[in-house]
Write a protein that binds this DNA or RNA. Structure first.
Lengths: 259, 259
DNA sequence: CAGTGGTCTAGACCACGTG
DNA sequence: ACGTGGTCTAGACCACTGC
């Protein structure tokens, strides 16, 4: 049954309450976008794999290809999907080198980044303080996993990260799995725990180095450090990580583009 | 004459070199986008005013309305144009409050920003050092205007900005005009000097407060400050400003969204 | 009511990747 | 040769704005 000029849109049809001033129906492509997001959230398509073609999706949702296209356009512009001409549309993944530097904004001053590596100092269960619970959208005392690591540029320690994760999805985390895994942490979250990080909000400050910072980063006490607080989210605005990084910025910097 | 299926695209036509492997023609909507950018750069439409309607532009460029639409979509997503349903498409301006906080990323910790104000300390000609020249894409020794100001949140000084501008467009700048102007600096650049800032790149570091910083910001010497280096650009990737800010981050923070 | 941008459709052809 | 996404067109109708 063809839709279009003479038939009403297939979703969120008109009736229901008679004269009730119903909420205006969202555009079709927004509804399609929502359905795609639901499928992503449910894990119907795994990171790195192709989703159905535009024509297939058009049939499934009973809309035109152009409408599916517009929905996918939005998701691609948010880096949730990746289009590849001639091949298909793929679920974005933290495994591709392409996605690496979207969330690693600290760069050496001299151009290209040296090889980065992690050294994990700690990994243990913890209870959420009121502040942590607030940031993660949990109750005070909720079970968390706590991780401490140092990030090195070449051989030099440059970031000391304290990371808190909800124990729900991340209960199985251990020092061994962390040490064993190569690649970015978000890649591990995605492939080992089925939690895909899609966006984050950061707050930056300059703070003096504490004794702990100084020991881990090999700088004098009181040295100004860049403190980066980050809350990461997965599908549906669900917080999945709070991270506090202390960064040495003598030979590197945090870069940002404003547009 | 209708274009489309049986006729070649109107721009960048096919011929020229016979079998020469000509550079592949850019998509039509990209060419339209380029033409629109040229008109913006030339000042054909001033900030805050409406550009011609999509149908008008389609006639002017001899393409379909959909193609114009796609070009405008891109420029709108880059915040160069602003669509307003029922009214038209407008050239973005730094005057609207909407654009204010795109380039002011330092916020008080307690939610909404108090009234910000500027106090100008200096405004004088200067010659470009090698480093400044490099950042601004000028020759060493090129004439610049130098401005120093303090930005206050409520009554408290929070940012000390050193700003360098090419004397070409900004030769007429003076302490009086700065003091007299109300609103964001980029608004002044746009309305008084015809230079519209459209994007910027920043590098952030933590540094100890110097004597000068401390005097202007009323903090102890050595206090960690957030140093923000910014190069701003106008149409055509032309640098129009280098700015170095030193920010107190005890009761405020630099925020950023990663996606 | 006329004009603007916003949505939706349908169909053609192109460019790319794979078999 | 085939299927994918990418471009381009044409035309319909909707939603908002302002006269």
């Amino acid at each position: 049954m063809p839709l279009g000029s003479s038939t009403p849109p297939p979703y969120e049809s008109d009736d229901g309450g008679r004269a009730a001033p119903r909420a205006r129906t969202r555009p079709l492509y927004r509804q399609v976008r929502h359905l795609l997001l639901e499928s992503l959230r449910r894990g119907e398509w795994m990171p790195g794999t192709a989703i159905p073609s535009e024509t297939e999706l058009a049939v499934r949702f009973q809309v035109s290809q152009g409408t599916v296209r517009k929905a996918i356009d939005e998701l691609a512009s948010e880096n949730l999907l990746v289009r590849r001409q001639g091949k298909g549309t793929f679920v974005a993944t933290h495994q591709e080198p392409r996605a690496q530097y979207r969330f690693l904004r600290l760069l050496p001053d001299d151009g290209t980044p040296a090889a980065t590596s992690s050294r994990f100092l700690e990994c243990c269960p913890q209870r959420a303080s009121a502040q942590l619970a607030d940031r993660l959208g949990l109750r005070t005392g909720a079970p968390l996993m706590y991780v401490r690591r140092v990030l090195l540029f070449g051989d030099w320690p440059r970031v000391l990260d304290d990371i808190w994760l909800p124990a729900g999805p991340f209960g199985g985390l251990s020092a061994e799995r962390l040490a064993q895994y190569k690649g970015p942490l978000y890649g591990l979250f995605e492939s080992e725990f089925g939690v895909r990080m899609i966006r984050a909000v950061e707050e930056l400050r300059a703070v003096p180095s504490t004794a702990e910072d100084s020991a881990a980063l090999q700088v004098a006490m009181g040295t100004p450090l860049l403190r980066v607080d980050r809350v990461s989210y997965t599908y549906g605005d669900r917080a999945i990580e709070f991270r506090r990084g202390h960064c040495v910025t003598n030979d590197c910097h945090y870069w940002n583009r404003l547009a």
